[in-house]
Design a protein around this nucleic acid. Structure first.
Length: 683
DNA sequence: AACTGCTGTCATGGC
DNA sequence: GCGCCATGACAGCAG
């Protein structure tokens, strides 16, 4: 329990939002104080607190070197001040004039967490008390012009809250926080006392703010880096900063040695009567905490645990909008989070009839948390969303029903309708026949139309047909089946789904009839005939079964002549059909091959033509060369008198020994005649 | 309406 | 003689 108190005090010291909300004037988010916001957020919050009613609060002067952000200061009304002004310039003066409590909470947060994490709760306690005392004292210095330090800062938070501290003692407090707790945490000013009686919760919060201020001032140096990080966070978007702070808080919680479970805390809170938290914080908790501290501590966890709900995220905006509805912290307004949700959200915290634990939504299960944090608008929206969802689901259900109906239609239609309705329903597993089977005109056991066992799908006879084409036709089994039920359904595994799977409602009936018409239309002539004559075999069976089995079937069945003739015709036509298909296929293949051959031959012909042309060209060239050579030789020849030889009268002739003779053409001609005659004689 | 392609069927012949 | 197969011819259908 002590641990719990310390934890409450330490964690709650960071928070004061509930008190502010109880006033109904300043609407500050719980989460805002719980997190580690950037200095700009603190500044904003300070400005918010600087509203009309803030002057009635206990004052918490700004530290000499407070954790202000160096960015441009904001006017309480949201006006941008001169960025060149010193950080503690005009704004601080205005704040002081308004008596606004300033809480460098980020440092407090960090310090508290650090202290608790290090197991030095006492230190945190003392620092809190010192901070409260110093804050109160400085408040007194600011408003009342000075006062005594609060005695026993860790004892009575209310005293520490309002206890004035001399301005000159502030630095001392900062230097020796633990000692200053006892020294400075003392009496409060009368004004603050009156204010405390008037707004007790606010006083607690103010005290807490003072505590935080002092603590932050105490840990200023040690958390300089931390503050810089916070400044970085302030420069980030809000969601990013919150993310960072959230992670920090989570880390803080993880760093603490708090063994209290959430359930225990909830039980503790719920067990307390109305406003019993004040009793806890004021009486039982030895640490300089307050009611709001405890509540805020819960809110701290609320932030930590419920930020995942995302409702708290945008509450910052609502908070900043709430005081005068004139200040907007975020440069980018989040319109998705109106102001009313904020009010709704905090309304339960101000409800006197509500237990303190009710606002500890962070300890509730996420769903409940979410619901609790939902505003009326959110609830309305959620309700509408739910209604829409329900309607959507209903629509989907309708669609599903339609789809299912259609599916049943298709399945049932695909399964076919037997002329006999006494099928068993185990054939549903055979519904996997594809419509292409019907398109093929083939029918079978698993065919689309189980019309008296007419039709089939011969692609997988071993599966779909009981006829074993290799070993013969199992007519006995077929007969047994037929004779037993007096039907021609021979396939127990066939889609014997003629029995209605369900009643056909209006549209489905039409669909079914239309599908049946299409099915009949897709039947071949033989199939229709077989169906009409109740032939107990499928066309595929009849066609493809071995002739011996077929003859055996004809002999064993008690078939009429018409049926036998039909079976033979079916078989003949079926085989002829297949033969015609093969023939056409072959013919087509032959045609294609012939075309291919023609193409090849044409290509070859073209090649030969080209070669012939080349050869002729070469021959002509050679002839021309020979002619030129001949002319050249004769141009150089001379007779005995030195005259040129006439090429028209003489010709050159090569002898067998390689010598070349000049012979008159007459002799050459006679010689050719003699050779030809010799050749003819030899032949 | 004619044309074309596909398919089923018949007739015929060969094996 | 029967069955199967191949093939030409014809008709119906669809594009």
């Amino acid at each position: 329990m002590k641990h719990l108190k310390r934890w409450w005090s330490a964690g709650g010291g960071l928070l004061h939002l509930t008190v502010l909300l109880s006033l109904g004037v300043l609407r500050v988010d719980l989460d805002f104080y719980l997190l580690l916001p950037p200095p700009t957020l603190l500044r904003d919050q300070l400005l918010l607190l600087g509203g009309p009613a803030s002057s009635a609060y206990a004052l918490s002067p700004l530290p000499a070197s407070g954790g202000w952000g160096s960015a441009g200061q904001l006017h309480p009304k949201g006006r941008e001040l001169d960025p060149a002004a010193p950080p503690e310039g005009q704004l601080l003066r205005e704040v002081r004039a308004l008596g606004v409590p300033f809480i460098p909470r980020t440092r407090v947060d960090a310090w508290l967490v650090h202290s608790v994490a290090a197991g030095d709760a006492d230190e945190a306690h003392g620092l809190l008390g010192a901070a409260a005392a110093s804050s109160a004292g400085e408040a007194g210095a600011s408003v009342d012009g000075g006062g005594q330090a609060v005695q026993g800062g860790g004892g009575d938070p209310r005293e520490a809250r309002s206890g004035p501290l001399g301005a000159g003692e502030e630095e001392k407090v900062l230097a020796e926080p633990t000692a200053q707790v006892r020294d400075t945490g003392g009496c409060a000013s009368e004004k603050n006392e009156v204010l405390r009686e008037k707004h007790e919760g606010v006083d607690h919060s103010s005290q807490h703010e003072e505590n935080e201020e002092r603590a932050s001032a105490q840990k200023e140096n040690s958390f300089q880096q931390n503050n810089e990080d916070e400044n970085k966070i302030a420069e980030k978007p809000d969601w990013e900063a919150e993310k960072s702070t959230e992670s920090r808080n989570e880390g803080h919680l993880n760093g603490t040695d708090i063994s209290l479970s959430l359930e225990d805390l909830l039980q503790l809170l719920s067990s307390q009567p109305e406003n019993s938290l004040e009793g806890i914080s004021l009486g039982d908790i030895p640490l300089p905490g307050s009611i709001s501290d405890g509540m805020n501590s819960s809110a701290h966890h609320h932030v930590t645990f419920s930020q995942a709900i995302s409702q708290d995220v945008n509450l910052h905006d609502a908070i900043l909008l709430s005081p005068n509805n004139t200040f907007i912290r975020e440069p980018v307004a989040k319109t998705s989070q109106p102001q009313e949700p904020f009010l709704q959200f905090h309304s339960h915290t101000t409800n006197p009839g509500q237990t303190p634990g009710t606002n500890l939504t962070g300890y509730l299960p996420p769903v409940d948390n979410h619901m609790r944090n939902l505003t009326s608008q959110d609830l309305d929206l959620n309700i509408f969303d739910e209604i829409d969802l329900m309607s959507l689901l209903a629509t989907e259900n309708d669609l599903d029903q339609i789809d299912i109906s259609q599916l049943f239609d298709e399945l049932d239609s695909e399964s076919g309708f037997s002329l006999d309705s006494s099928h068993n329903s185990t054939s549903v597993t055979k519904y996997n026949s594809s419509p292409s089977v019907c398109d093929e005109g083939a029918t079978g056991y698993s065919s689309n139309y189980d019309l008296g066992a007419v039709g089939g799908y011969y692609q997988e006879p071993s599966k779909l047909c009981h006829v074993d084409h290799d070993s013969g036709f199992h007519g006995d089994l077929t007969f047994q089946h037929i004779f037993h039920n007096h039907t021609y359904h021979l396939k127990p595994s066939a889609p014997e789904s003629t029995s209605e799977p369900f009643s056909w409602p209006g549209k489905s009936q039409k669909i079914r009839s239309r599908y049946l018409e299409d099915a009949d239309r897709n039947l071949s002539r033989d199939e229709r005939h077989a169906k009409a004559l109740h032939v107990p075999f499928s066309v595929d069976e009849i066609v493809h079964m071995p002739v011996d089995s077929f003859n055996s079937m004809l002999s064993r069945y008690y078939l009429t002549d018409l049926q036998v003739s039909l079976l033979r015709d079916i078989r003949r036509r079926g085989k002829n059909k297949v033969a015609a298909q093969n023939c056409r296929k072959r013919k087509l293949d032959i045609i294609l091959n012939l075309e291919y051959d023609v193409c090849n031959l044409q290509a070859k012909k073209e090649t030969l033509k080209r070669e012939r042309a080349q050869c002729n060209k070469a021959i002509n060239i050679m002839k021309q060369k020979l002619h030129d050579l001949y002319r050249d030789v004769f141009s150089r020849l001379r007779d005995d008198q030195g005259r040129p030889v006439n090429p028209n009268l003489y010709a050159l002739q090569c002898s067998h020994d390689g010598s070349i003779l000049i012979i008159p053409k007459e002799l050459v001609a006679s010689g050719h005649k003699k050779e030809t005659q010799k050749g003819k004689r030899k032949r």
